[in-house]
């Protein structure tokens, strides 16, 4: 599914760069050309791309965890196969994005270690719990749906290796999203208990999905380096609007109610009421809605979300548990015997 780097890619203005090279670089970007790793680029761009690709890679492999919990509990053979393949894809996306980052100069091992020890971040959305099968359906519909919207725009970016990886990832996301739609449709046209499971999961995931695109835009977002240099191509608020316009009416047609919710520390809904701001503005074609709780958003980013500790603990467990295996093939006499 993937995060992507809407959260906090701060790129410093490149003050000490050669102005002639800078002009050439920006001209290439404006002409819509793709940049390749060996091309000249300002240090700030290289660092910014590394940070963005690394954050995205981290998000993929952490994103494999909440859904991974449900592989062993998927309720049919087809769903079991599909969910395994889906989580496997996340790992594959992580692998490809770490590769993009490795080519920008940081070792994968160091990136994994920085992730586990909290030096680098991953997407906020994976710090929420998935307590039922309904959550798996909603994650694949809403969060993968949001990821596709975002990644489609990232595929219009300027950094060649990242853009090519996005295009490849998006092909696989299409499967994730379709299978998510299939699960949500099955659930919402199922028994009373299933529909209730779907509604409760929707209540847990609607706001994380809206927050998925990152905090409200800074003034003049288009002129700041991430967009000026086409590291991203559409602002957070514009992506969020596209998302609502597509998903709010679809949710209503599925029989889902869109609620403003209050959650406890474990991410479970303790209060809900219909979103009274939700309506379609016929003249603009845009839906209005109640904004997410941005205080919660920053609280979770700072590490105090319902599942931050659990996700990192499991990644650390996996890293430490696998150390002897990597050690054996990196340092040991681990070659295969000569062919007979």
């Amino acid at each position: 599914m993937s995060g992507s780097a809407n959260v906090g890619v701060h790129v410093d203005h490149a003050r000490d760069e050669d102005p002639a090279k800078m002009a050439e670089f920006e001209a290439k970007i404006n002409a819509g050309e793709l940049l390749e790793p060996d091309d000249w680029m300002p240090q700030a761009y290289r660092q910014g791309m590394l940070k963005m690709a690394e954050h995205h890679a981290n998000s993929e492999i952490i994103g494999a965890l909440p859904e991974g919990e449900w592989i062993t509990r998927a309720p049919s053979l087809r769903r079991k196969l599909a969910l395994t393949a889906k989580v496997q894809d996340e790992v594959g996306h992580g692998q490809m994005l770490y590769r993009v980052s490795q080519d920008l100069g940081k070792s994968r091992d160091q990136m994994l270690r920085d992730l586990i020890t909290g030096r680098t971040k991953y997407h906020n959305v994976f710090n929420y719990p998935a307590p039922t099968w309904g959550d798996i359906a909603m994650i694949q519909w809403l969060i993968d749906g949001a990821a596709i919207m975002n990644q489609k725009t990232l595929a219009d970016g300027a950094y060649g290796p990242y853009v090519r990886t996005m295009k490849r990832i998006n092909m696989e996301e299409a499967f994730h999203f379709k299978s998510g739609e299939d699960m949500v449709l099955t659930l919402m046209s199922g028994t009373k208990m299933q529909r209730q499971m779907g509604q409760e999961a929707f209540d847990r995931w609607w706001y994380p999905a809206l927050m998925f695109f990152g905090p409200p835009d800074k003034p003049h977002a288009e002129q700041l380096p991430p967009m000026r240099w086409r590291m991203k191509t559409v602002t957070n608020d514009n992506l969020r609007r596209r998302f609502i316009n597509r998903f709010a009416p679809a949710a209503i047609d599925l029989g889902l109610k869109i609620h403003v919710v209050k959650k406890d520390d474990n991410g479970m809904v303790i209060e809900r009421k219909p979103d009274e701001n939700l309506r379609l503005d016929e003249t603009t074609g845009n839906w209005s809605f109640t904004q997410p709780d941005w205080d919660e958003f920053y609280r979770v980013i700072r590490g105090n979300g319902p599942c931050n500790a659990k996700r990192l603990a499991l990644r650390r467990f996996s890293y430490e548990q696998g150390r002897w295996v990597r050690h054996a093939i990196l340092r040991g006499n681990a070659g295969l015997p000569p062919a007979a």
Binding site: Q102, S107, R108, D109, Q110, R113, I116, T117, G118, A309, K310, L312, A313, L314, R316, F317, Y319, E320, R323, R326, H327, I329, L330
Partner: peptide, 17 residues
């Protein structure tokens, strides 16, 4: 049940394949 554990890793950096 993997227990949250904070702080640095005790093992040295491994390097990549």
């Amino acid at each position: 049940q993997s227990h949250p554990s904070n702080g640095d890793l005790t093992s040295p950096a491994e390097g990549d394949l």
